[in-house]
């Protein structure tokens, strides 16, 4: 028996990187899973690779949009009859810059992608979960939700903000059977980081992409990046029924980077 037998999970993002790791772990634990991405062809390929058969479905949509963050909830309920676990996972930066050079467009994109989509998806999930008296909401924040780095002002601001949202929602729902928690991963060399990392590194005042990886590794105790599997293991724990008393928790998976 898996830990998530009979449960339905939705993951914004989820065709690759951290979300993909969560999706694969949830499938192994017996859940039905909805993953999301912009590209229908890539989505079809990802779910074929994951091999979940009828237990996995793809919802196409841009995770920075309200229609996606809300639509994935409706889609999961329609497809699998309910939604028990909502992973508000998608996030990142496109063209980050120091505050003095930050464009309104990038700022707005990061707000929508990292914060507003979490709010939209959380609100919609709660409207489904609260009447059922059961739910697990898991927000992917970041080590940058507590720390700060030059050149990542929007990312730092939004990843901090989702922790505030997580704590408030946890207090609101603490006696309802719904839990709301955040995971704070350190740097993981995902596809997304490989794509946007070189430009981010430049904006952080670093010589190269490798220097950015080294910066994150150096501030950890383990002196190396984290892995998708490490985050997925925590997500399984928080998604399980056994975690009923965990809420408002900020769970670090950062190799000892954060001071608190």
């Amino acid at each position: 028996m898996g830990k998530l037998e009979g449960r339905v999970a939705a993951i914004t993002g989820g065709t690759r990187s951290i979300g993909r790791g969560m999706a694969e772990a949830f499938l192994r634990e017996g859940a039905k899973v909805v993953v999301n991405g912009r590209d229908a062809a890539k989505g079809a390929q990802a779910i074929a690779e994951m091999g979940g058969g009828d237990n996995i479905a793809f919802f196409a949509g841009d995770a920075t949009k309200q229609s996606t963050a809300e639509g994935i909830v409706d889609f999961a309920v329609e497809r699998f009859g309910q939604l028990d676990i909502m992973c508000l996972n998608s996030g990142g930066v496109m063209h980050t810059a120091p505050v003095a050079m930050m464009s309104d467009e990038e700022w707005q994109l990061e707000m929508d992608w990292n914060l507003n989509s979490v709010f939209w998806g959380m609100r919609k999930s709660l409207q489904h979960m609260l009447p059922r008296g059961y739910g697990r909401i898991i927000v992917t924040s970041s080590v940058e939700g507590k720390g700060g780095k030059p050149g990542l002002p929007g990312y730092n601001a939004t990843k901090h903000a989702v922790l505030g949202l997580t704590k408030a929602a946890a207090k609101e729902t603490g006696t309802t059977g719904v839990t709301v928690n955040a995971i704070l991963p350190g740097l993981i060399e995902t596809d997304i980081v490989r794509e946007t990392g070189p430009e981010s590194a430049k904006m952080m005042g670093l010589e190269s992409y490798d220097a950015m990886i080294d910066l994150f590794a150096a501030e950890s105790a383990i002196k190396k990046p984290n892995t998708v599997e490490q985050v997925a293991a925590v997500a399984v724990l928080l998604a399980s029924e056994a975690a009923r008393n965990f809420t408002g928790c900020m769970f670090p998976v950062d190799g000892g980077s954060l001071p608190y």
Binding site: A221, Q230, A233, N245, G248, F251, P252, G256
Partner: peptide, 21 residues
């Protein structure tokens, strides 16, 4: 979880198990 191999990436953490206190 911490004792397992998947726990290798979690260290120096003060993990709250307090129902959100």
């Amino acid at each position: 979880l911490l004792a397992s191999d998947a726990g290798a990436g979690i260290t120096g953490s003060l993990i709250s198990i307090d129902g959100g206190s």
